[in-house]
């Protein structure tokens, strides 16, 4: 037993240990993790489907088939209708709010756990790192699945609208037509969707986790959800 020795400094944990604890937490809380991840998946699926759908539309217009498509839509000279811009912006907002909300809830219900870990000697930084890892993983996997679902949805929709022509002109890669708007291509859209989902998930969880970690443990443990 220690007697009157000066109080030492708490050590940093190896990264592997944080990784192990965060994965264990995800595994045991599997059902809850799935719901949080589903929130991310849905947000990104919506965004990516709208975006990809738009990319497909633009690509097929560029290919000279615009006369048969978008017949009931007002098309601007650049090929992107105001309705499409509106849809993309809306889906982006839904995605941001949805993901931020599901991460925020997931962290808030764990304030007590954060307080308890601090009682046992966890450093603030360790707590934040745990949430960073957990949410980064959830964000990436959720967003990847979402992006793939979204793309699939957009492709099915495209097949309905354009038939098999879709595959001849499929905007897989970025393109810069001479007299058209820059096209990102589906791969870039998927990639951006994944990055966005991951960033939103990480911000949405590590910000409240950081706030909770800064609280004195007594206060964190008092927090009721």
């Amino acid at each position: 037993m220690q007697q009157r020795t000066p109080i030492e400094e708490q050590i940093d944990l190896p990264f592997v240990e944080s990784l192990r604890i965060s994965f264990q937490s995800l595994k045991i809380r599997f059902g809850r993790s799935i719901i949080t991840t589903a929130g991310i998946t849905l947000g990104i699926a919506f965004l990516v489907s709208v975006w990809t759908n738009n990319e497909i539309g633009v690509a097929l217009q560029e290919s000279g088939r615009q006369s048969t498509i978008n017949t009931f839509e007002e098309t601007t000279e650049q090929g992107i209708s105001t309705k499409d811009i509106w849809l993309i912006v809306m889906s982006l907002i839904v995605c941001v709010v949805g993901i931020a909300n599901s991460m925020l809830m997931a962290v808030t219900e764990r304030f007590r756990e954060i307080g308890t870990m601090k009682c046992l000697g966890a450093l603030d930084g360790f707590v934040v790192r745990l949430f960073l890892l957990e949410s980064g993983f959830q964000g990436f996997s959720g967003a990847l699945i979402g992006a793939l679902i979204g793309t699939l949805g957009a492709v099915l929709l495209g097949l309905k609208d354009y038939g098999l022509d879709l595959f001849f002109y499929f905007p897989l890669l970025p393109a810069q037509p001479e007299n058209g708007p820059m096209q990102l291509g589906v791969i870039i859209v998927i990639l951006l969707g994944c990055i966005l989902g991951m960033i939103l998930a990480v911000i949405g969880s590590s910000f409240p986790a950081w706030r909770a970690a800064k609280l004195p443990p007594a206060e964190a443990m008092r927090t009721e959800v």
Partner: peptide, 13 residues
């Protein structure tokens, strides 16, 4: 005490 010392205190003492 510093933050690190407080964490060590809670951990060990």
């Amino acid at each position: 005490l510093s933050q690190r010392q407080i964490a060590a205190f809670r951990c060990h003492r």
